[in-house]
Design a protein around this nucleic acid. Structure first.
Lengths: 128, 128
DNA sequence: GGTTGACTTCGAGTGCACTCGAACTGGAAG
DNA sequence: CTTCCAGTTCGAGTGCACTCGAAGTCAACC
């Protein structure tokens, strides 16, 4: 093991920049239990490990796909309970995937109307 | 013109049921200027024409695709100004379509991660 | 050794999109 | 005629997800 192999870690500001959230949000996520308590340095400042950042990246994906914070918290709780919740976590993801797929189908429908409308406007402009 | 051809119209409750919004929301949309003032009967109750309902259906699509109420209001204002705003309205829709497409691409990316995660869980469960 | 800047906690404030309660009105059914 | 129900306006309240202000701490640089 090389001396340079020591665990790298990021400040809250650096972690925020990495995952595309604000420092406010990162602290709030921790407070809300979406993230297990992050390690601190000797001065009490948060140090994010690569694992912490990976977890945050996953959270941002869940969030972006419309998962409510409440469900993310439930998922985080399950994850903290270890392997015996693997099935529950998979179930949660499968249910969420179904919602995302439904959402995408809906968006495609709505997109058609958008395209149709744009066409109507284009034609109306021609004959103006 | 048949006597049965007289303009049909819906109450706020009926219109709400038709478009999948609540009566509260319909009144609020009107108040916010997303809908031109709706006609009233002799008792002061709203009567929604087929045209009103069509407009509401379009609004729900814009809303579902993530258009902020602010932008919907802007669009409604343009529509009320008649044909001379056709170009502006098309521009607005084209910009919105671009956002929807971007959103769909993002969802597809996120879906991949979701699928990957489900797979990881499945495998972990097998070897548990 | 003083200044700067990023960090800490805490509670309060914001923006968005509804959602509701209260008090009232008016047409229709029994 | 009474009861009921769906409607009316108005302003206030809700839920969600942040977002910020204030007061303080601490390590690093000049």
């Amino acid at each position: 093991m090389d001396i340079s192999t020591q665990e790298m870690s990021l400040s809250v500001g650096e972690a925020a920049a990495q995952v595309g959230l604000t420092t406010y949000t990162l602290r709030w996520y921790e407070q809300e239990g979406l993230v297990a308590p992050v390690g601190r340095d000797s001065a009490g400042r948060r140090r994010y490990t690569e694992g912490d950042v990976e977890w945050l990246r996953l959270l941002t994906r869940l969030r972006r796909t419309g998962m409510p914070v409440r469900d993310m918290r439930r998922y985080a709780e399950l994850a903290r309970q270890g392997d015996r919740t693997l099935g529950a976590r998979r179930g949660l993801f499968e249910a969420h995937r179904a919602r995302v797929l439904a959402r995408m189908a809906e968006l495609e429908e709505d997109l058609k109307v958008l395209n149709y409308k744009i066409d109507v406007y284009r034609k109306a402009e021609e004959g103006r």
